[in-house]
């Protein structure tokens, strides 16, 4: 018998899922919870095989709960059952160790299948989600250069600073206000991790920025 708990803050949804699973062989709903915190207590008490988990909940949301389950190395497996289909979120959940992801309009058969597969140690993802996931791993590449990218405007200003123009002259030349020039100068100083304009000049030559 596979023991299941349902975590969702909407009574209606819990009732619906209970109804769907009521006639399924080998599956038993052993408890329900309305948010992550309640669920955590329930999990410790019952240690169910499967947790059907909604994401958007008050007090403690599904993302936080799945993180907790993973970090506390609890043996219960997590299937997310949510309305959300933001890819980045799903990637994050998969990284955190979620074993399944279903959209809330999944039919009875799919939910039952997912529970059985995950119980056996496999993964199960909604078809739409799966296609997206497969098309887009690895995740967004983050730039790994030594210094953050310098914007076009910053580049212009850096050049003019190297030409020994004053902020006032730069403002006139680029048709922007003195304040804007100063802001860009400050941003550059922060980006390059230097303390003043002299450091800016040194670093920009060092990295060949202009």
């Amino acid at each position: 018998m596979i023991s299941v708990i349902i975590v969702d803050d909407h009574k209606l949804v819990i009732e619906g899922i209970e109804l769907m699973l009521s006639n399924s062989e080998g599956i038993q709903i052993v408890g329900t919870a309305a948010n992550g915190l309640e669920a955590l207590e329930l999990i410790h008490e019952m240690s169910p095989d499967i947790i059907l988990l909604d994401l958007n909940m008050p007090v403690m949301n599904g993302l936080e709960l799945s993180k907790k389950i993973h970090s506390q190395k609890l043996k219960s497996k997590v299937i997310i059952l949510s309305m959300m289909d933001e890819l980045k979120l799903i990637q994050k959940l998969v990284q955190q160790g979620a074993d399944g992801y279903l959209l809330k309009n999944s039919g009875k058969d799919e939910i039952v299948e997912a529970i059985r597969k995950v119980y056996k140690g496999e993964k199960h993802f909604d078809k739409k989600v799966l296609i997206q996931l497969m098309a887009n791993t690895p995740t967004t590449k983050t730039r790994q250069s030594l210094i953050p990218k310098i914007s076009k405007r910053e580049n212009e200003i850096l050049k003019l600073i190297l030409d020994e123009l004053t902020s006032n002259e730069i403002a006139h030349k680029l048709f922007i206000s003195l304040g804007t020039v100063e802001t860009h100068r400050r941003n550059l100083i922060n980006k390059l991790g230097v303390r003043n304009t002299a450091g800016l000049v040194k670093k920009s030559i060092e990295f060949g920025l202009v």
Partner: peptide
């Protein structure tokens, strides 16, 4: 989602922006 992205509510700005970037890509 158009009205108020869930990711933003759920996991803050960073993930929301990452999702936005991913969306532009895919």
């Amino acid at each position: 989602h158009d009205l108020m992205p869930n990711v933003l509510r759920l996991d803050g700005l960073q993930t929301a922006i990452e999702d936005l970037a991913l969306n532009m890509k895919t």
